[in-house]
Design a protein around this nucleic acid. Structure first.
Lengths: 101, 101
DNA sequence: TCGTGTTATAACCAAATCGTTATAACAGCC
DNA sequence: GGCTGTTATAACGATTTGGTTATAACACGA
């Protein structure tokens, strides 16, 4: 239970999700991610490290650059399903509200 | 992106997942959840409140008891998929380790 | 109304988390 | 070697979060 919670925690941070989304089309090195996200370099590095430790992303040094890429694109399916559930629960809540008013 | 992260955050806490799992078979009132989880009553109440706000769970007062039930059992599918991905990434990491040693 | 069982909340502490700034570590090139 | 560009990390402050304890709020029955 604990391990699963930790896994979910990986996706529970907006900037981290942004970084991950940036890597969706394909591998990028750190500065490329920095440019695309507008986040600070230190912060991007931190998030990428976390994603690596979580096994979501793979680190591949190439010369003086370091590329990162998503290991299993199934994570995006997970995100999609989560988004769907989230939207459904929102609708449900609005309906509940409407039933009261 | 932010909303999605918040949704994931709901599932990023071990005790909260335990509470949710307890509700899997069907509706339970608070004390029933307390008994089954071994968590303190105040803590269970807190987590249930969060789950309610997140729209994962519905609150239904019945006399002096308050029952909670999972609105969309699809959340368990989400958890299943997450667990699967988690295990896969673990395997992958072990393989990477084995390749080095 | 008083007491009891149930649930919610407030106040508080400890720990975790996120971001920034500054700097280290590293690779390649002159 | 020294310089530059790239990436990682350490140190710090601010905020959030999870848990406990104590108590409030609520429904019900004697």
């Amino acid at each position: 239970m604990n391990a699963l919670a930790d896994y979910f925690k990986v996706f529970s941070e907006p900037n981290r999700l942004t970084v991950l989304e940036t890597l969706r089309p394909g591998p990028l090195n750190v500065t490329a991610v920095v440019e695309r996200t507008g986040l600070s370099q230190a912060l991007v590095s931190k998030h990428l490290k976390l994603l690596t430790i979580a096994g979501v992303v793979r680190r591949r040094p190439e010369g003086s650059l370091v590329f990162y890429e998503v290991i299993d694109k199934g994570v995006f399916q997970l995100m999609g399903q989560a988004r769907k559930l989230m939207l459904a629960s929102r609708r449900q809540q609005l309906d509940a509200l409407a039933a009261i008013l």
